[in-house]
Design a binder for these strands. Structure first.
Length: 591
DNA sequence: AAACGAATAT
DNA sequence: AATATTCGTT
């Protein structure tokens, strides 16, 4: 049950490289003491370090206290104090740990919900040893993704180049000349025919900033910020995004909106801060208005694919949940970004670092593969360089959305993945980024007040932050149905498996580490506390969906404040260690 | 000329 | 509301 404190500095679990899976720090959450015992026993047999907890809130507390104290979480779905889904959400948002859900019933909708919200796997009780033995795969998978992300960030140059040729996108998908050509042809075709009638034709292709696309955008922004040598501007962002059909104007427009959004966020924060409110505990979760209403896009791909192919239109089951997650993630990032902007550098909360990753995948399939790939003595801290190959999914593109559905997991993954990447990777240069974006220094006085307080945040109800909206697929469909691009495919990442492996291992590692290690414990106790309490749920992700609401809870969102807050002031430069922030990725979408 | 960013249009 | 376009600057 105890984890070795010392070891976890870098996010990776302890450095006991040797016996690979052994020592995996598992947090088991279940209100049923019997199961708790059973699981503990079984897990210990697997040589894992086990910590048990009967209350979800307590589990959250433990996790928050030691951000790097655990490698994986196994939680029951049905618990009195907090529903397992909520816990899942929190974990996904705050600490990016793999979470396994479990319950006695295997009702499809619940399993789906769990998976959509980021559960790596869903186990049905009674759980047997064989199901626990390989849970380390989820941890391992995550590490790989992190590395991959970082790597992608490092390859700034490469990316730029890629615009013209074929290259792997962040997602690991290939954009190739062919695609471009295809796109172009399509466009021409459409233009010629004008629309008349065809839905297909002509419409202007409005770019829909889906979560996925936005994530790319944010990632690019962060990256630029990171390398401070560059100023953040549409052009650079565009280059980094590596989305062939996107134009500088598109990016400029989005950036404008993004900046507005950030400034709004700030104002809100400031306000709240000044009010001093800190209590939030009561607020219910839903935030009415404000929210980040994101639209959903189940397909995550859509962005990539302007055509909007698969969208379900209306609805969405999946989408919603997924979105919500993303949103949340966005928020965080946004927040963090905002913070940065404001303050420039602060030590940031460790939380951020990894957190965002939501890549959860369906583990099973992958697992085997990974396993094989993994070199035997693998240390947690390192990732296997390239052992894996990327698997792309064949394009599924399909014209209709449905086809994709089946693999339920996929959707989630897609969206989720990105967040992770971005989050993890960026870490260090944060402050810069923020500034750049908002341009504190150079820019106008957007958020003057900022410096002052720490956060406090929020409340939310009203929603202060409202939104940065992302569009949903359905929308996309309408508008873009015909957009050019074929890249779409790229977006799909099926289970989280396609990792592109890293090439520059070293650098990756370096980054990871830096990112990970937390230098500071950022928050004040107060804040933290309140945060913990779950009160601050400031954010709203306005999600209309019923489902979503169910599990979202106030606490869920609460995080916002934390990130935001910083006290430090700003602007100056970014000193040395930038804290690891995650970036704001998706936050924009609100609607 | 190229790229920005704010304003304005759709 | 979300993007696209325009327009004056740099």
């Amino acid at each position: 049950m105890s984890f070795s404190a010392p070891s976890m500095e870098n996010g990776f679990s302890s450095p006991r490289n040797e016996s690979f899976p052994a020592g995996l720090r598992v947090l088991v959450v279940d209100d049923d003491p019997t199961w708790l015992k059973i699981l503990e026993k079984m897990l210990k047999k697997c040589s894992y370090e086990v910590t048990t907890c009967g209350l979800a809130r307590e589990a959250l507390k433990l996790l928050r206290e030691r951000k790097d104290g655990y490698d994986i979480v196994i939680s029951d779905v049905n618990m009195p104090d907090m529903d397992g889904f909520k816990l899942l959400e929190h974990v996904g948002l705050e600490m990016d740990l793999p979470v396994l859900m479990m319950s006695v019933d295997g009702e499809t909708s619940r399993v789906m919900k769990g998976v959509q919200h980021g559960a790596c796997d869903y186990l049905l009780k009674p759980i047997r040893m064989k199901e626990l033995r390989n849970i380390w795969q989820h941890v391992f998978r995550k590490k790989i993704h992190e590395i991959r992300d970082i790597e992608s960030h490092d390859s700034y140059d490469g990316i730029q180049i890629s615009r013209n040729g074929s290259e792997l996108s962040d997602d690991g998908h290939m954009f190739c000349g062919e695609d471009l050509a295809y796109v172009k042809k399509r466009k021409d075709f459409e233009n010629k025919h004008d629309d008349i009638g065809d839905h297909s034709s002509t419409k202007k292709h409005r770019v829909v900033w889906s979560v996925d696309l936005h994530q790319k955008f944010v990632k690019a922004v962060n990256q630029i910020g990171f390398d401070s040598k560059y100023e953040v501007g549409p052009k650079k962002i565009l280059d980094l995004m590596n989305v062939p059909w996107l134009t500088r104007e598109n990016v400029a427009s989005h950036l404008q909106k993004y900046r507005l959004y950030l400034s709004r966020l700030q104002k809100e924060n400031d306000l709240k801060a000044s009010l001093g409110g800190i209590k939030l505990s009561d607020l219910p979760s839903k935030d009415p208005a404000g929210s980040f209403g994101l639209q959903s896009s189940i397909n995550g791909n859509q962005n990539d694919v302007p055509n909007g192919r698969y969208q379900f239109s209306g609805d969405n089951f999946f989408a919603q949940d997924v979105d919500s997650k993303n949103h949340e993630g966005d928020l965080k990032r946004v927040v963090s970004e905002t913070k940065r902007t404001l303050t420039a550098d602060l030590p940031d909360p460790q939380d951020m670092r990894t957190q965002m990753s939501f890549d959860h995948s369906f583990g099973s399939l992958d697992s085997e593969v990974n396993f094989a790939a993994i070199p035997a003595p693998y240390s947690w801290s390192k990732a296997p360089e390239n052992q894996f190959k990327e698997e792309h999914k064949p394009l599924l593109q399909l014209e209709d959305g449905f086809s994709q559905l089946p693999p339920s997991g996929i959707h989630n993954h897609i969206q989720i993945d990105d967040p992770l990447q971005s989050a993890s990777s960026i870490t260090s240069g944060l402050s810069m980024t923020g500034r750049e974006i908002c341009g504190p220094e150079k820019i106008k006085p957007l958020y003057p007040q900022y410096s002052s307080n720490h956060m406090s945040i929020l409340s939310p109800k009203e929603s202060a932050f409202d939104s940065f909206p992302v569009q949903s697929k359905s929308q996309m469909v309408k508008h873009q149905s015909f957009e050019p691009i074929s890249t779409a495919i790229s977006s799909m990442k099926p289970q989280g498996f396609n990792l592109s492996c890293i090439t520059d291992f070293e650098s990756c590692q370096r980054n990871l580490i830096s990112a990970t290690d937390s230098t500071f414990e950022p928050f004040n106790e107060d804040l933290t506390v309140c945060w913990l309490e779950g009160d601050c749920h400031s954010m709203n992700f306005g999600l209309p969906n019923v489902e979503f609401t169910d599990y979202i809870d106030p606490g869920f969102i609460a995080e916002f404040p934390i990130y935001l807050c910083d006290t430090l002031t700003s602007d100056t430069e970014c000193p040395f260690d930038p804290p690891e922030y995650s970036i704001v990725d998706q936050g924009l979408f609100l609607s």
